[in-house]
């Protein structure tokens, strides 16, 4: 099957029966979902087993400052300067807030 058509059809079929309520309007899970992209290296819910920094329970401002410093190349890194640039400041704020709340 033509892939473009298949995709378009699937989209039309997929959302036709669903409630119009969008997840993005104050999506309660956005911070959780964004933070989960960090867990591969930093541990589930930010609890690292070692060798990478644990993020769980870290003060929000401290973590946010660090992420912004990586993002602006002010703080040298092997990889975090490259990854942090993939997120907006608003997204980094959500991530820092979410990890800070993991006690």
């Amino acid at each position: 099957m033509n892939k473009t058509n298949a995709t378009a059809l699937a989209f039309a079929a997929g959302f036709a029966g669903l409630s119009p309520a969008p997840a993005q309007a104050g999506d309660p899970n956005l911070a959780r979902n964004l933070s989960a992209t960090c867990a591969n290296c930093h541990g589930t819910n930010g609890r690292s087993l070692g060798g990478m920094e644990s993020l769980a329970g870290v003060d929000k401002n401290k973590l946010l400052d660090k992420l912004k410093a990586f993002r602006s190349d002010a703080k040298p890194a092997t990889i975090m300067h490259q990854i942090s640039k993939g997120y907006s400041e608003e997204q980094l704020d959500l991530i820092a807030g979410w990890f800070a709340a993991q006690k």
Binding site: L18, P22, A23, N33, T37, A39, C41, I79
Partner: peptide, 26 residues
Amino acid sequence: AKLAAAAILNLLAGQRPSDQPMVVNT
């Protein structure tokens, strides 16, 4: 897997998946 898990839980609750998923690779 995390993208799918979040979307599936929304779908099972009768909600749309998030419209702003992100993934990282290393």
